[in-house]
Design a protein around this nucleic acid. Structure first.
Lengths: 90, 90
DNA sequence: AAGTTATTTAGTTAATTATCTAATTATCTA
DNA sequence: TAGATAATTAGATAATTAACTAAATAACTT
């Protein structure tokens, strides 16, 4: 859970997720959207992958990244739980 | 928005939010739950306050902290948007 | 097989962050 | 008002993180 929050705490990584929302992309295509070196983007992708927020699949010479939407639900649940419920005066 | 994600990216701060979910607490009461110095907790509270995740109110000698639930909704919305919608092949 | 392209790994550096101790400010009580 | 308690601010240090360049790996093309 901490890994996920840490991964989400960087604006570049959130932008990457925003890009992938629109469709799958190769590592290179993702890097092209940023003014950051490819190795740095590679590192960000790794962090997102470790947090299970994205998946990667090798397609020949390319590596295609895509969103893994399942983990988001856990974060949403935590947030709803901490913010929404438990506030009723019993 | 970045401030909020950064604030949520620390386990101690998330624990503080979990505590406040159950009810308001003074800075000292919060610090008592942790093995960390009071100044460190004070710093964490400051970060949570800057992110508008908590509010503080001076009650005499004490400062009472409480959850500010409104900001959580923005984070939830972002997460739902990035994970849920936009995946339909149009 | 030699060269080119895509991506990652390794190693380094600079910036940020979490923590600590010590000192300060403010409030309460005897 | 003097002493005790609550919380913060200040300043220092250690750990983490984001970024870079250079090198390595893997797959495609001619």
């Amino acid at each position: 859970m901490n890994t996920v929050f840490k991964a989400l705490a960087d604006p570049t990584r959130r932008q990457i997720l925003d890009l992938l929302k629109k469709g799958d992309l190769t590592a290179g295509e993702i890097a092209d959207h940023f003014d950051i070196s490819k190795p740095s983007i590679s590192n960000h992708l790794n962090i997102l992958k470790s947090a299970d927020l994205v998946m990667s699949e090798k397609k020949g010479q390319y590596i295609v990244y895509s969103l893994n939407t399942t983990v988001f639900q856990d974060v949403i649940t935590w947030l709803i739980n901490v913010s929404g419920k438990g506030n009723e005066t019993p």
